[in-house]
């Protein structure tokens, strides 16, 4: 399990990467009592990929935080 931190709206979020079966997910902890957010990459028709929350209901956060996760992963390589 890999863990790292990202900055989001003046908060430092703790992100942990997991494999659930064959699926790669990221669990985001806010540290302020807000429920953890779980995000993953998914595919739209036409093979365009985007971030989404699991379960449904937090799409905007998933897209914003997902992009920050992607940037952090690229930065760490």
């Amino acid at each position: 399990m890999e863990e790292f931190e990202i900055r989001y709206n003046d908060l430092v979020l703790n992100v942990a990467e997991h494999m659930v079966g064959n699926d790669r997910i990221f669990r985001v902890l806010f540290g302020n009592g807000k429920p953890a957010l779980i995000v993953t990459r998914t595919t739209a028709p036409g093979n365009q990929t985007f971030w989404t929350s699991i379960p449904e209901g937090r799409q905007q956060e998933a897209e914003e935080i997902g992009e920050l996760i992607a940037k952090e992963i690229k930065r760490r390589k």
């Binding site: 659930v20 079966g21 699926d23 993953t40 595919t43 028709p45 989404t52 699991i54």
Partner: peptide
């Protein structure tokens, strides 16, 4: 549709399964 976003049928199945898996994770 998942999270009001269009996804492929296979992705929809995967995401719904992932929901169940995460409950027990």
């Amino acid at each position: 549709y998942y999270n009001r976003q269009k996804v492929t049928r296979s992705e929809y199945i995967r995401l719904k399964q992932l929901e169940k898996a995460i409950l027990n994770y």
